[in-house]
């Protein structure tokens, strides 16, 4: 159904082919989160891998900073319909985390956990092979708190609510368990190119 009188403001073709359905381009970097920024102290910061409740490996901020670094540049897409092109991130890839822990991923799924007690689920298959990282830098600088610093998950091929801010660890789960937004009707996977915003999309 066409909307009476709506013509739209189409972006150039080069922009449109990079925009998933329903998205529009922003030059800002909007901030979306459920509450205030949590206080995160680098002196007590830990990043912990767990299998269920059992800790597998934990790093302090300094130890984390000594891990191999990976850069990623590209487009990010938020479920609230903005996309931002050509973002530049740096951090520790999931592959390097597994190597540093001396393990292979013990299960096929995990929940990323934030210092604000936010959680979101991501399949391990969407993190391996360079597809996901724990980012500490954006645009060459430490990630500011508004954007999830000191460290956030980055899974740029999924809607950005999967890229948990203020991440404190990854918890491997036996099955695909819903996180904060997924429990509230958001899609379990969240592929922007299939417009998987909500459960049933």
């Amino acid at each position: 159904m066409a909307t009476r009188g709506f013509t739209g403001r189409r972006p150039p073709e080069t922009t449109r082919e990079r925009l998933p359905p329903g998205q529009h381009l922003t030059d800002d970097f909007p901030v979306l989160q459920i509450g205030p920024n949590p206080p995160v102290d680098l002196a007590t910061w830990r990043f912990t891998l767990r299998e269920g409740a059992r800790p597998i490996r934990s790093w302090t901020w300094d130890e984390f900073g000594a891990l191999p670094r990976t850069r990623w540049g590209g487009d990010i897409h938020c479920v609230t319909k903005w996309s931002k092109f050509d973002t530049a991130w740096e951090g520790v890839s999931f592959d390097d985390l597994m190597a540093a822990a001396g393990i292979a991923a013990p299960t096929d799924f995990l929940l990323a956990e934030g210092y604000d007690d936010y959680t979101t689920n991501v399949p391990v298959a969407d993190l391996v092979g360079g597809k996901g990282m724990v980012a500490t830098h954006y645009d060459g600088r430490p990630i500011p708190p508004d954007h999830g610093g000191p460290a956030r998950l980055l899974v740029p091929h999924l809607y950005f609510w999967k890229s948990a801010k203020w991440v404190k660890g990854l918890r491997f789960t036996q099955k695909d368990e819903a996180g904060f937004w997924e429990l509230r009707g958001y899609h379990m996977y969240g592929d922007p190119w299939r417009e998987q915003r909500f459960d049933g999309d």
Binding site: P30, L32, I34, G35, P36, N37, W82
Partner: peptide, 22 residues
């Protein structure tokens, strides 16, 4: 506003935020 509310001693878990724009 969030900073002011936290500084006033309100527990973070009681505060919900929503931001417009972008």
């Amino acid at each position: 506003a969030s900073e002011l509310l936290l500084a006033a001693g309100i527990a973070p878990a009681r505060i919900r935020t929503e931001r417009f724009g972008g």
